[in-house]
Design a protein around this nucleic acid. Structure first.
Lengths: 211, 211
DNA sequence: CCAGAAGCGATACGATCGTATTGAAAAAGG
DNA sequence: CCTTTTTCAATACGATCGTATCGCTTCTGG
């Protein structure tokens, strides 16, 4: 066989280029040629990595999804959760992609979400990422409510329900920041308020204050 | 002069076609030719109505924005607010575009939001619509909190802050429904819960139950 | 050592896009 | 009634897209 190339790393490299270009012109605005140029490979190389453009975009959205969920996870394990509540705050803030550093990632994500409303295979990929994020949030909420005193009264909070709302709020805030309707400070404030109210409803005795 | 045509009505007719096609293929996927066909006019007619494609898309997004805000307004005036709280519920549900009937409108809106993250003039248009919606929500929240007993204690709720969060939540829920991560029932439930908790914080004596 | 499979960059091709242009039809003014 | 101006539909044009194809290089298995 001929020169062996690491296809996996090349695909990732191309996915990075797709993200950079999607950030600039939207995912539909990226061309195979631009991707090749940005990834510093030939057009033919891109074609050999992916059968067609759609496959390339699908791979890229998977790539972004993994990066985001992974970053949330590392953020959680790095600050080893003084309390589940603060961990939840970190996770939510991370998901909202509010930091200016991650503005590009947020734009890419939003662009793919919009595209997914029209492309079912893309939507399927996104659902996987969203389900993972929601489960993660729900788990944190569960931990947070269990870390409190024994919850004597019956059902206090439905973690999945709370996670759904939190995830939707984070996503909505992110898009509003992206189009300039909100400043990132306003968005962060809204997220903060939401979390504080969530904690107030936890059966925990001490009214947590950390964020 | 030659045959006089009503340009304004034609522009609206074309905008409708743009919406229909954006719902199917995304706003970037619409072509001038398809728009002309769908609007049952010639390509030349479309060109005479709008200098170029971008102008056409901008007009279309304005059109959708007006339709949405107007529908929210009429919904409010039609059910003459037994209480400001129920009016707020109606408004939020309407904004979230959760009804299947308005799924297309929601898709169009989401598509334009994503596009706006890349196109500043489009973002400017969207900001206007969002500001109008947020103000409307804030006004309703204000009314709702004033309808209660004299709020003796100081600041109880910041209407603009609550409106921001509510709007973001509605938007996030809508997009999650669109990509199939949530059912419209789950989204409606999340919105409902959020509103109930909002009312619990109102200085109103009677813990309102209507939605 | 060498035949051949696999990877490579470059180019070609057909389709489709937005926009420009063209010539005929139509309505108002003199 | 005829000129003039506006509108119309249709076609032309250049650019750009995704994809297919084609030699040439490069490395491995026998």
């Amino acid at each position: 066989m001929p020169k062996q190339v690491d296809y996996e790393s090349r695909r990732r490299r191309i996915a990075e280029a797709v993200c950079l270009l999607s950030d600039e012109h939207g995912p539909e605005g990226v061309t195979m040629r631009d991707v090749a140029t940005r990834a510093e490979v030939s057009l033919g190389a891109v074609q050999r990595c992916f059968r067609n453009k759609e496959e390339m975009l699908l791979f890229a959205v998977d790539h972004v999804g993994e990066r985001i969920t992974e970053r949330v996870r590392t953020r959680l394990s790095s600050s080893p959760a003084q309390s589940a509540a603060t961990a939840l705050g970190h996770a939510a803030t991370e998901i909202a992609l509010l930091r200016r550093k991650h503005r590009a990632e947020a734009r890419v994500w939003l662009a793919f979400v919009a595209q997914a409303a029209v492309s079912e295979p893309l939507a399927a990929k996104l659902r996987i990422s969203y389900a993972a994020l929601q489960d993660l949030l729900a788990r944190l909420i569960t931990e947070a409510s269990e870390s409190g005193p024994a919850d004597d009264d019956a059902a206090t909070l439905d973690p999945q329900r709370e996670a759904r709302a939190l995830l939707a709020l984070a996503d909505g805030l992110t898009s509003h920041v992206l189009i300039g309707h909100l400043t990132s400070e306003e968005a962060e404030d809204a997220l903060h308020v939401h979390l504080v109210r969530l904690w107030e409803r936890l059966p925990t005795s001490r009214p947590g204050k950390a964020v």
